[in-house]
Design a protein around this nucleic acid. Structure first.
Lengths: 137, 137
DNA sequence: ATATAATATAACCAATTAAGTTATATATGA
DNA sequence: TCATATATAACTTAATTGGTTATATTATAT
């Protein structure tokens, strides 16, 4: 399952992407505007910084801003950064087919299904999402 | 996440489908041949019976056999029977977009990704799987 | 300088889910 | 009627999820 934290990370980035370049928002602003628990925004920021997507400035007047073009951030990257390796089945967390078989047709199906799912996340960028969400109502 | 139980249910049906029509196997035989905890096979059988996929005969010489053509059982049906409604995200367990928006573009992405995944399970039948697994090694 | 606004990090907790075990009831064929 | 088999429920155990709490650190406006 894709966790709430991954969803929150996506929303944080989308909120930043919804403003003009170099707009600085405080974590509290982001939390309020996107209905995310404030502490979780604070908790997630180091991950987003680590990936080079955002930078933070401390002190009064400080806040968070995007560090790169949100068109180059895919949902897949964000989800994997927050949730770790994705696996729709326990089987896929291992690199090996289970048991003593060298090949498993059921595993092939898991892989195909997961690949199909991931392709959607790979083709969706934060920028597109932010644009689409701006039209939501 | 698709659970082990769903996977076990698929393997039970695949094991039955790997034998000639009307072959009766005991739950213990199935458990041994597919490396499934014996108690779980027993636990899963009522679900499979309920769906009309299998029937069981008690007593000595009894066992389990397929009740319908395994080509007409899709992996999606089996997974949903065992795990209940599938949702790759908490959001998708609700019928409504969250918050007070009537539309949510992020939800659209979750739905699209999940649909892509499910289509693989919908196109895969127990019969095909059993045939493919027979060739595994 | 110092108070304050902000991020950074770690530790903790409650609820849920997953996986499997245990126990018991019920049916049936030899 | 006994052995074999399915049917059903209750119960552990461990991991995960979603979130809270607490504390440290940094930087700037005054």
């Amino acid at each position: 399952m894709i966790t709430k934290k991954a969803e929150y990370a996506i929303l944080i980035l989308a909120e930043l992407a919804a403003h003009p370049d170099d707009t600085v928002l405080t974590s509290r602003e982001i939390a309020t505007r996107r209905s995310i628990p404030a502490n979780l925004v604070i908790q997630l920021m180091p991950l987003l910084h680590e990936s080079g997507w955002t930078t933070g400035t401390r002190g009064p007047g400080g806040g968070i801003k995007l560090a790169i073009n949100p068109a180059s951030i895919t949902l897949r990257e964000v989800i994997e950064k927050v949730d770790g390796t994705i696996g729709i089945t326990r089987c896929l967390f291992s690199n090996q087919p289970c048991g003593n078989k060298s090949h498993c047709s059921l595993r092939d199906i898991w892989i195909k299904a997961q690949t199909n799912m991931l392709s959607v996340f790979e083709e969706a960028s934060i920028k597109e999402l932010a644009r689409a969400m701006a039209r939501d109502n």
